[in-house]
Amino acid sequence: MPAAVAASGFEPPTIQDFFPPAVLFAGTPFELNRVMLIRLLALAALVAWLYFGTRKMKLVPGRGQVATEFALGFVRNNIAIETLGEEDGRRFMPVIMTMFFLTFGMNITGVIPALQLAGTAVIGLPVILALIAWALFIYAGFKKLGWTYLKNALFLPGVPWPLYFLLTPLEILSTFIVRPITLTMRLLMNMVSGHLLLALVYAASSFFLFTLLPQGNLFGLIGIGTVLFGIAYLAFEIFVALLQAYVFAFLTAIYIQLAVAEEH
């Protein structure tokens, strides 16, 4: 088998998949590669869906309106309102909605034929979303509590003051540094690993079924198993795309809720 693989020139997916060459405007500040085009396409699809899905709402909704209302209501009720309460939930709902649907829209491109690369699988977009979440919970804390927010965040109430020399640096690290990093890396790594595994399954299936099997090599029958695994994993990746969008929006809401709490 290894000799057959080597002789066939089989090339598994690599990290270079995430750094494709320029497609448009090469060498200019507006250079676009495949990843950027996928992001722009996903953004256009989201804007079109939200515009046409909410433009003419009816008292007796059709199927499209029911689906749109269900999606919006899910984020509203299960993330924004449930986590932050009615007042703060409504206040921060636009940003949380944007976080959820933008993340999901960029994630799901990883399983769409002809695209097959998540817009969040390159670090730039996850970093921007994480920095927005970071700035948002800091703003929310200062807006509601002023400098008391910083005091609550760095000096835990009820702790003997000598322990602050140990706990305060840890709180600075966990609250203001680790949070945006973990938001970024959780989203990025899930999308990167998902793409690499899906691409490996596709490449392996093609290799077994269309290279080895026509040569009479019975190892080509393994392709049947890789195809079945690919179908199952494709369904799993759709679930992961939705789950990561939920986690990102939910953690953003949790961080805001912790920031506006009177005490930690």
Results as ranks from 00 to 15, higher is better:
residue 216 G to A: 00
residue 186 R to P: 02
residue 12 P to A: 15
residue 131 L to P: 02
residue 100 F to Q: 00
residue 134 W to M: 13
residue 116 Q to S: 14
residue 75 V to L: 00
residue 189 M to P: 07
residue 218 L to M: 15
residue 183 L to Y: 03
residue 153 A to I: 03
residue 41 L to H: 06
residue 142 F to W: 03
residue 52 F to L: 15
residue 52 F to W: 13
residue 169 P to N: 09
residue 235 A to P: 09
residue 174 S to C: 07
residue 13 P to A: 03
residue 71 A to G: 05
residue 94 P to N: 09
residue 255 Y to P: 00
residue 84 L to T: 05
residue 83 T to S: 02
residue 94 P to K: 06
residue 237 E to R: 05
residue 173 L to F: 14
residue 211 T to P: 05
residue 5 V to Q: 15
residue 35 V to S: 06
residue 90 R to S: 09
residue 185 M to I: 14
residue 103 T to L: 03
residue 63 R to T: 15
residue 180 P to H: 08
residue 54 T to P: 11
residue 102 L to K: 05
residue 29 P to I: 13
residue 134 W to E: 04
residue 97 M to V: 00
residue 171 E to K: 08
residue 83 T to M: 02
residue 184 T to Q: 11
residue 235 A to W: 15
residue 177 I to H: 12
residue 18 F to N: 03
residue 52 F to N: 14
residue 222 I to D: 09
residue 189 M to R: 15
residue 260 V to R: 06
residue 156 L to P: 09
residue 194 G to N: 12
residue 255 Y to I: 01
residue 254 I to W: 00
residue 104 F to N: 00
residue 98 T to Y: 02
residue 252 T to R: 08
residue 162 P to H: 14
residue 78 N to E: 14
residue 222 I to G: 12
residue 218 L to I: 13
residue 18 F to A: 06
residue 74 F to P: 01
residue 217 N to M: 08
residue 6 A to C: 11
residue 202 Y to M: 15
residue 233 Y to P: 01
residue 230 G to L: 08
residue 15 I to Y: 12
residue 258 L to S: 07
residue 141 G to N: 00
residue 38 I to D: 03
residue 113 P to G: 05
residue 198 L to R: 15
residue 109 T to W: 04
residue 26 A to R: 14
residue 130 A to K: 11
residue 260 V to D: 02
residue 44 A to E: 03
residue 186 R to Q: 09
residue 160 P to V: 06
residue 173 L to Q: 11
residue 143 K to G: 04
residue 139 Y to F: 15
residue 53 G to H: 01
residue 124 G to H: 04
residue 201 V to Q: 14
residue 115 L to K: 12
residue 135 A to N: 05
residue 160 P to T: 07
residue 1 M to F: 10
residue 236 F to C: 02
residue 202 Y to H: 15
residue 7 A to N: 13
residue 180 P to M: 08
residue 229 F to K: 14
residue 241 A to L: 02
residue 226 T to W: 02
residue 134 W to F: 14
residue 39 R to G: 07
residue 240 V to R: 12
residue 200 L to F: 10
residue 143 K to W: 09
residue 45 A to V: 14
residue 72 L to Y: 06
residue 261 A to F: 01
residue 38 I to G: 00
residue 238 I to M: 08
residue 114 A to L: 10
residue 181 I to A: 14
residue 8 S to C: 06
residue 214 P to G: 13
residue 151 K to S: 06
residue 163 L to E: 12
residue 94 P to L: 01
residue 200 L to M: 13
residue 80 A to D: 04
residue 117 L to E: 01
residue 259 A to S: 03
residue 142 F to N: 01
residue 203 A to W: 12
residue 253 A to L: 02
residue 238 I to L: 11
residue 78 N to T: 04
residue 253 A to F: 03
residue 168 T to Q: 13
residue 73 G to L: 07
residue 43 L to W: 01
residue 8 S to R: 09
residue 213 L to F: 15
residue 86 E to K: 10
residue 200 L to E: 12
residue 239 F to W: 11
residue 108 I to C: 08
residue 49 W to A: 11
residue 89 G to Q: 04
residue 64 G to R: 15
residue 247 V to N: 12
residue 140 A to N: 03
residue 31 E to C: 04
residue 23 V to F: 04
residue 120 T to Q: 01
residue 205 S to V: 05
